[in-house]
Design a protein around this nucleic acid. Structure first.
Length: 567
RNA sequence: CCGCCCGUAGCUCAGCUGGAUAGAGCAUCGGAUUUCUAAUCCGACGGUCGCAGGUUCAAGUCCUGCCGGGCGGACCA
């Protein structure tokens, strides 16, 4: 595909005298106008002529330079149309040659990208909110890996902070009442909720105990508090792992904030050594108002000497730099923490670290319930496990109804149900807030994951039947794919889409693109039969089916959805 | 009060980082199955692109100001 735009670019450059990299090749709004377009407005000044006249003259000259590409002036535009057989042969040839790696490239070779994702909090349920970080982060990581980068996915577990003092206090008092073993997360959540209700009801001793517990924890003492904290961590991680297995997500590193405990002192010393720290109201801070007016200072140490979230993230980012010398360090964290990451980068900038701007906050919108914001303190959360279960059960019902003979219906139902949930989180621009609506999450029609999976299954089915019937061996009649030109052009854009999704860290670009491809395919094969045609025709159509199926399979994999062969 | 983000069809969203008559899905209504899975396809309905200015040959897209919603704003994470 790129060979077409390259040819157009260099021909235009030769005729206009402009640099080929400066020429913007667009896609016409109306596909019937052509495959590519070049607006001539920009040339009007230098050539001192009206754009339509330039277009007409250029189109004539270009015709001779371009082999297999027709150039036609339409008003101020030059529209280009690739000869249909050439288009089909080229695109399908590219896909076939690259196989499962179509669209991949090696532009990131030798560079490492660190991605901080998921990062659930110990003793709290994995909510549909954490799903966003996990699913978006994992998709970004796979997409970047397809561009040749070495990726390091880090699950930065929230296992530190005052809330553990609270939990230990709650367990000490009421732990005997609850069943921590069989359903630890829910038991811990109710303990956490009880702590807050009773503390608000006037039991001041609770907060004191929590404070003492956390101080003991931070002191490093191997006492009862640390033992309980350790047990909480183990129970929670085991629960989280169940979800990660269902989502098919793996991490290069799973590290708690506690890991950075030994680095906190050196981290603060290192920042102090650059002379940017100061004491303010009893706390140790870095002033950031010189970078951006109104930016609040970053607190490194509280009045009582203990560290904060920001200190631990600074320790972590130094550690990551030393370990990986990353080209980018991405934090897939909700948009409510924007200020935190601006401050993190701000401190690095003030320290004079030349890699400070490699730190990027990949923010995503908040997940909200129709009844309001989610709150684990109030117990108002939707458990991810429940969402996945319900989606799987709905999928199973539909299979039972539409495809009762499907083998491994339970396994496929899991793939489709999880696929629906995952895709629902990836399909819109990540910065947009989402309201959690059950009917949308477990929907399998229209712009959904199952729609893409279904398209894939249909195409697979055609391939299977072709193999059974022994069809498709003839020399393909590429010109016969003229009626699938839009599918081919979309397929041809896949490498660009992947590249863009990677640099923007925006999986929705890929999700939107694959939906469009599926729509065009469904539209096409609703009206065109593949099997049982003239051998050259069937062969050509089968080639299109294969290239499409393979590319959808690849896209689903990058997004983190399974691609069942039947459903 | 200050800062950042969002505002496109009844609802959920695309709109290729300024270009040709603004596109999908859901919902509603009407249609398509002797033949590769109807989780599909086709058609109809539906828009002063929040409002007002400005820059430009050209603005949904860039700038300014308002309005509405979200999120932040030193010892939580």
């Amino acid at each position: 595909m790129q060979q077409f735009t390259d040819a157009i670019r260099s021909a235009l450059a030769a005729q206009s005298g402009l640099k080929s990299s400066a020429l913007k090749i667009e896609t016409p709004r109306d596909p019937s106008l052509g495959d590519f377009a070049f607006p001539c407005f920009g040339l009007a000044k230098s050539m001192k002529q009206a754009p339509p006249k330039i277009a007409a003259e250029l189109a004539d000259k270009l015709g001779a330079d371009l082999e297999g590409i027709e150039a036609v002036a339409t008003g101020p535009y030059i529209n280009f149309r690739v000869e249909r057989a050439l288009l089909a042969r080229t695109i399908i040839g590219e896909v076939a040659a690259a196989g499962a790696n179509y669209g991949h490239n090696t532009s990131g070779a030798g560079q490492t990208i660190v991605i901080d994702l998921s990062s659930p909090n110990i003793a709290k349920p994995m909510s549909v909110g954490h799903l966003r970080s996990t699913v978006i982060g994992a998709a970004i990581e796979r997409i970047l890996a397809s561009q040749g980068y070495a990726t390091v996915g880090i699950n930065h577990i929230g296992d530190w902070g005052i809330q553990f003092g609270k939990l230990v206090a709650a367990i000490d008092r009421w732990g005997a009442d609850s069943d921590l073993e069989s359903d630890p997360i829910r038991a811990l959540l109710s303990l956490y909720v009880r702590f807050h209700t009773e503390a608000e009801a006037g039991d001041t001793s609770l907060e004191e105990e929590a404070q003492q517990n956390f101080q003991e924890l931070e002191s490093g003492e191997e006492g009862p508090v640390r033992a309980t904290w350790r047990r909480l961590t183990e129970l929670s991680l085991a629960e989280f792992q169940k979800i990660y297995d269902r989502l098919g997500v793996n991490f290069s590193q799973v590290r708690g904030e506690a890991f950075y405990e030994p680095y906190l002192g050196p981290t603060i010393e290192r920042i102090e050594a650059t002379g940017i720290t100061e004491m303010s109201q009893g706390a140790e801070i870095v002033d950031l108002s010189t970078l951006e007016k109104n930016m609040p200072p970053c607190l490194l140490r509280k009045t009582d000497g203990t560290t904060l979230y920001a200190t631990r993230d600074l320790a972590a980012v130094f550690h990551r730099w030393e370990q990986f010398e990353f080209a980018r360090c991405l934090y897939v964290v909700g948009s409510d923490q924007k200020l935190h990451f601006r401050q993190l980068r701000g401190v690095c900038q003030r320290m004079g670290l030349d890699w400070a701007d490699r730190i990027e906050h990949i923010a995503f919108g908040m997940m909200r319930l129709p009844e309001g914001k989610m709150s684990s303190r109030k117990g108002r959360v939707v458990f991810l496990e429940d969402v996945l279960d319900r989606a799987r059960d709905e999928a199973f019902k539909i299979i039972a109804e539409k495809n009762p003979d499907l083998k491994d219906a339970r396994g496929v139902a899991e793939q489709v149900g999880v696929g629906a949930v995952v895709f629902n989180d990836l399909k819109r621009e990540r910065i947009k807030d989402i309201e959690f609506v059950w009917s949308e999450v477990v929907s399998f029609e229209g712009d959904t994951g199952p729609y893409v999976q279904y398209t894939h299954a249909r195409l697979t089915s055609i391939e299977r039947k072709a193999a059974e019937a022994g069809e498709g061996g003839a020399e393909p009649d590429w010109a016969a794919l003229a009626d699938a030109d839009q599918v081919l052009l979309t397929l041809g854009r896949y490498p660009d889409v992947l590249r863009s999704a990677g640099t923007h860290a925006e999986p929705s670009e890929l999700a939107t693109w694959v939906l469009g491809l599926c729509r065009e395919l469904n539209n096409w094969y609703a009206g065109h039969r593949v099997l049982g045609q003239a051998p050259e025709l069937s062969a050509a159509r089968l080639q299109l089916v294969k290239a499409s199926r393979s590319t959808i399979h690849s896209a689903l994999g990058l997004l983190g959805l399974a691609a069942p062969d039947q459903m």
